[in-house]
């Protein structure tokens, strides 16, 4: 394998790692948005999941317990969001923002209380790499995509399953109906609120998983506000990928690639400020959004609470 091929492989490998949490969260958000529940609290739910996963893994030394704890916290916030937006019919944007700030404050506080005195940054082990037989032998792509840890393979499975769920099953059709015309869904006997709860809770689970991935695959340590806006990038990926899990993965890969390029160039000593690359995902998002003006395919009832008794 020559140097260029190795470089490409390494870049793609890093992109996958960058993309995985974005895709987990993005898939959750897609399901939520398809049902008409906008959740910009993705950032906070990821952060909550990451912190909890880190804590539990630190104290129990169990990846599995860590992941489950991270997902549980995500689930709690997903349920809270549904409670506020679906049952109490409050503003979805405000609820999402509140979750973001609440979790940021809460995690920072507990981090200081628990680790504030430590002189070294606490860290945990990360998941071992398990190359997949055969697939990982594919030149260039094999090592980049199929030589990862188990959680990354879980991501691939989640992408496939949610795609089937959304595109091929009656549940997917029902979810679209609930987000597009909840009244029509209701009169067809579809339990609108239950589906929105499900979607919002699933979103929480996925965000918790995204946070856990960051802990036990990407970083292995925790610092304050470690998600640092990745939740918002995931929201952009959802919009760019038009709520399609596969497309979201590729958009996230592209975003991950810009970060990968940044690290590579930095290590090669190219004098481009890292901030330029930090801008890239947002720049790409803004440009693509500009080009998709007037072609919004948002669900018609996105962000609108459903009230059967409301007279129009």
């Amino acid at each position: 394998m020559n140097d260029t091929a190795l470089l490409v492989t390494n870049l793609l490998f890093a992109s996958v790692r960058m993309a995985a949490p974005l895709t987990f969260a993005g898939i959750g958000e897609s399901v939520s948005q398809t049902s008409g529940v906008l959740n910009i609290g993705v950032e906070g739910m990821m952060l909550g999941g990451a912190f909890t996963c880190f804590l539990v893994t630190t104290y129990t030394n169990s990846f599995l317990l860590g992941i489950l704890a991270g997902m549980l916290v995500g689930l709690l916030f997903g349920t809270l969001h549904a409670l506020i937006c679906v049952t109490a019919k409050q503003d979805q944007t405000i609820s999402g923002l509140a979750i973001n700030f609440f979790v940021l404050g809460l995690t920072s506080f507990f981090f200081l209380v628990l680790f504030g005195q430590a002189s070294t940054l606490p860290d945990i082990k990360t998941l071992p790499v398990v190359p997949l037989p055969l697939l990982s032998k594919i030149p260039i792509l094999g090592p980049a995509f199929f030589s990862h840890d188990l959680l990354t393979y879980v991501l691939y499975i989640v992408i496939i399953l949610t795609t089937i769920f959304l595109k091929k099953t009656d549940y997917g059709i029902q979810l679209i109906a609930v987000g597009e015309n909840p009244m029509a869904a209701d009169t067809s006997g579809i339990p609108v609120k239950r589906l929105r709860y499900f979607a919002s809770m699933f979103n929480g689970l996925m965000c918790g998983l995204a946070g856990s991935y960051m802990m036990i695959v990407q970083f292995g340590f925790y610092i304050e506000n470690i998600t640092a806006g990745r939740g918002y990038i995931a929201l952009a990926a959802v919009t760019l990928g038009r709520r399609n899990p596969v497309a979201i993965f590729f958009v996230s890969l592209l975003i991950g690639l810009t970060e990968g390029v940044q690290f590579t160039l930095q290590s090669l000593g190219v004098p481009i400020p890292s901030q330029v690359f930090s801008m890239m995902p947002y720049l790409v998002a803004v440009i693509v959004l500009l080009f998709s003006i007037g072609r919004s395919n948002d669900p018609s009832a996105l962000g609108v609470p459903y009230d059967r008794q409301e007279r129009s």
Binding site: K168, T169, D170, Y171, I173, Q174, I176, A177, E180, N181, M183, A184, A185, T187, S188, G189, I190, N297, P299, S300, S312
Partner: peptide, 30 residues
């Protein structure tokens, strides 16, 4: 009941609208 404002989902097909919410043969893979 057919309402004055039709209760159809624009982004779904005629067939998907007609069976919306039903459990047909093979559900959930109708």
């Amino acid at each position: 009941m057919v309402h004055q404002h039709f209760q159809l989902v624009n982004t779904l097909t005629v067939s998907e609208n007609i069976t919306l919410g039903l459990r047909e043969t093979g559900y959930p893979f109708s």
